[in-house]
Amino acid sequence: MRDKKAQIIQSAIKLFGERDYHTTSIQDIVSLAGVSKGAFYLYFHSKEELLISIYNHFLDLISNGMNQALANPSSTPRQVLEQAIYLQMKIIMGNKEFLSMMQINGAAFIQNETIKDILLQTTLQIMGWYQTRIIAIYGPPIEKHSLDCAVLLNSMMKDYMFYCLSYHVARKPEELASFLYERLDDLVQGMLRKNDGPILSSIDMLRNMGLCGESSTWMLKVERFKQWIDTHIEDQRASDTMLQSLEALIGELKKEDPNEIIIQGMYNYLVTLGKDNAELLRHLEDLFAWRLTKS
């Protein structure tokens, strides 16, 4: 991430945490960041857009924590999941003031359609990640209950974090991670013992979120690619052009009958933009692979 943009985001996180989002002005943020208002508007059109970037910033941290948990090839499936829970607890505990403010104002912020979409997409990714880990730990017998288990784990994490942040309950991240994993184990064993039917299924979740079918895979890949562009493409104009192109693709893919010619044309345009960046081209190929096979 570019240095000035990072300074603005970190200053906003600090001020939103110490005060709140609504009473913190753009001037307050740039003064603390040591940059001009012109620099602010180079990266953000408004304070609302900055808030969206902060949401993305924290969601990136969580995503990176999950990837970090997977990075050790010698870790068992149980160790991977417990490490992921620990890293999320550590991130949250390290940003108590800001995240506490977000919890208090969460309902109001979710009225913002962009933030709502980000949270829906992220929820889908996290639930899928948890499901995969849970099945890896407990095997095929838990598969039909895996989404229920993932939702319960996520709910426990959120509620315990709420009490820790709101009532200043002092607990170490590793202590919470171990406790929550043990509670998940209790839940799983109870489900396996009773063998009742599941309440939730992955296909229901996708359908209710309007993401059923191939477009769900596409949307998740697009979101990850957008994050990669923001952190790896130094040229601001090129970065903005790529992100705008991806937004156009998202709009096309949300249509009932997406236009394959537009999708192919946008792909060719993005390839042209990234022709000198081998890593970007690899991401593009992966992103578009399932569409291009239809051409």
Results as ranks from 00 to 15, higher is better:
Leu32Val: 13
Leu32Tyr: 15
Ala33Ile: 13
Ala33Pro: 10
Ala33Gly: 04
Gly34Val: 12
Gly34Ser: 05
Val35Gln: 08
Ser36Arg: 01
Ser36Met: 01
Gly38Lys: 03
Ala39Tyr: 02
Ala39Thr: 14
Ala39Leu: 11
Phe40Tyr: 02
Phe40Lys: 00
Phe40Asp: 15
Tyr41Phe: 09
Leu42Met: 13
Leu42Arg: 02
Leu42Glu: 08
Leu42Ser: 12
Tyr43Trp: 01
Phe44Lys: 02
His45Tyr: 14
Ser46Pro: 03
Ser46His: 04
Ser46Lys: 08
Ser46Met: 04
Lys47Val: 11
Lys47Arg: 08
Lys47Ser: 10
Glu48Asn: 10
Glu48Val: 15
Glu48His: 09
Glu49Leu: 13
Glu49Thr: 10
Glu49Ala: 11
Glu49Pro: 06
Glu49Val: 13
Leu50Met: 02
Leu51Cys: 09
Leu51Pro: 04
Ile52Gly: 11
Ile52Val: 13
Ile52Lys: 15
Ser53Val: 14
Ser53Asp: 14
Ser53Ala: 15
Ile54Ser: 08
Ile54Leu: 01
Tyr55His: 03
Tyr55Met: 04
Tyr55Phe: 06
Asn56Arg: 12
Asn56Asp: 15
His57Asn: 06
His57Ile: 06
Phe58Ile: 01
Phe58Met: 02
Phe58Ala: 00
Phe58Tyr: 01
Phe58Val: 01
Leu59Met: 14
Leu59Trp: 05
Asp60Trp: 07
Asp60Tyr: 07
Leu61Asp: 11
Leu61Ile: 03
Leu61Glu: 09
Leu61Phe: 03
Ile62Asn: 06
Ile62Gly: 07
Ile62Tyr: 03
Ile62Leu: 06
Ile62Pro: 03
